[in-house]
Amino acid sequence: MAWQWFHRLGSPRWFFEKTNAWIPWLAAISISLLIVGAVWGLAFAPADMKQGNSYRIIYIHVPASFLALAGYYTMAISGAIGLIWKMKLADMVMKSAAPIGAVLTFVALITGAVWGKPTWGTWWVWDARITSMLVLFFLYLGVIALQEAYQNQDTANKASAILALVGTVNIPIIYKSVDWWYTLHQPATIKFTSESTIHPTMLYPLLVMVVGFYVFYALVLLMRTRTEILSREKKTRWVQELAVKT
């Protein structure tokens, strides 16, 4: 029985019709969480002792960084499912996940830079985390570039899935290497406010923001995948009937 479910999930049409009702819910949840978290974090959480108000950018920076990495794994895992079980839907999820992840990684990089200006007095520091994030951004760009380079959709999906998988094997190695490189070159004098010492009044809004970002990510991924389904299945009867109805 479990397999039947799995196969049905592979059908783009079933997925499209099933998820139709989810969108308003996801949208409502993510928007309210983001508003609550942002207002709480920006207006009500206390200022940091050392950094003053500038630390408040973590309410965007931290969730974006989390999702940058989680997004890569989402992309790679759906790519692997597409490769192994030849599931069309997984290919579409992978294709949709790549640009979202890249944008979130970019957001994490930009907010990191903006945070760096008041903290370290410069826009860019070769900090271990920022460097890893930059490499992750390059990995995303590679997947997207490869996807764009192929004319044939199917080949494009499979090729970029392989690249994403190779990246997945490499990401832990890259992160560890960069960490090691950083401790070698820079005595650890400057540090981010580590999450473990953060005060609860600052932490709770951050958690709300993180959850809000995850739901928002799910929403955008779902919407992009649905668009992808329509464009890939445009020649099928059900999509055309849908187009006529609306």
């Binding site: 490499v135 990995l139 997947v143 570039a145 380079a149 190779v166 490499n170 290497s177």
Partner: peptide, 20 residues
């Protein structure tokens, strides 16, 4: 036009080798 694309997709994977 694979030439430049190879560099794009492979260079990030070279990071650990270069570091060590």
């Amino acid at each position: 036009k694979g030439g430049i694309l190879i560099s794009l997709i492979i260079m990030p994977l070279y990071v650990p080798v270069l570091i060590f």
